[in-house]
C-alpha cells in the first residue's frame, strides 16, 4: 500500500470525528442520497473493470486474479440491483465495458481505491441498514482486491 494511501486512511480513521467530517480529503465525495451512492459505485466499478481487463491482457500472470475480481463485480452488481429494487431506485443501465487504454498497475490501483472509497464514503447516505450491511460485505472483497494490488506493486518495486 502506498504511503500516501496509508496516510490518508489514517487521517480518516484517526481524526476526531468532529474534525473528520466533512470527509477529510479535498476530493472526497459527500453523497446525499442512496441513488447517488449506487450510481457512483456502478461508475467506479465499470472503470475498475475496464482497467482490470486491460491489465490482464498485458500481464498473463494477472488473469486468474482478474477473472475472480470480475466475478466478484458481477455478484456485487446483483446485490446492488436487488437493493435498488427494494429502495425504489431506478436500475443501473450497464454499458458495455471496454478495455482501458492505460495498462498500468498504478492506474488500476487508483481506480480500485476510488471504488473502495465510494463504498466507505457512501454508507452514511444510504440510510438503510440492510443495504449498508450488504454493500459493506462487497467492500470487504474490494478492499481485499486493493491489497492484492498493493502487494503486487510492492513486489514489483522490490524487483526494481
Amino acid at each position: 500500500m502506498s504511503p500516501d494511501r496509508r496516510r490518508l486512511l489514517k487521517t480518516v480513521a484517526l481524526a476526531p470525528l468532529a474534525l473528520a467530517l466533512p470527509a477529510p480529503r479535498a476530493e472526497a465525495a459527500d453523497y446525499v442520497s442512496a441513488g447517488q451512492v449506487f450510481d457512483a459505485i456502478d461508475g467506479f466499478e465499470a472503470e475498475a473493470a475496464s482497467r482490470l481487463r486491460r491489465v490482464a491482457k498485458e500481464r498473463g500472470g494477472a488473469r486468474t486474479f482478474v477473472q475472480r475480481a470480475l466475478a466478484d463485480h458481477e455478484r456485487h452488481r446483483a446485490v446492488r440491483a436487488r437493493h435498488r429494487r427494494r429502495l425504489g431506485l431506478p436500475a443501473y443501465a450497464l454499458k458495455s465495458i471496454s478495455e482501458a487504454p492505460d495498462p498500468s498497475l498504478d492506474g488500476l490501483r487508483a481506480a480500485q481505491e476510488a471504488l473502495v472509497y465510494a463504498h466507505a464514503e457512501g454508507f452514511p447516505a444510504l440510510g438503510d441498514s440492510l443495504a449498508v450491511h450488504d454493500l459493506m460485505a462487497n467492500m470487504v472483497d474490494l478492499a481485499r482486491h486493493l491489497t492484492v494490488l498493493d502487494l503486487w506493486l510492492e513486489k514489483e518495486q522490490a524487483r526494481g
Binding site: 486512511l9 470525528l17 467530517l21 466507505a120 452514511p124 467492500m139 470487504v140 478492499a143
Partner: peptide
C-alpha cells in the same frame, strides 16, 4: 451516526488489509 459509520467503514478497510 453518520460520522462514526464513515470512520468504522475505513477501519474495516484497514482490517481487510
Amino acid at each position: 451516526t453518520k460520522d462514526y459509520l464513515l470512520s468504522a467503514a475505513f477501519i474495516l478497510v484497514d482490517e481487510v488489509r
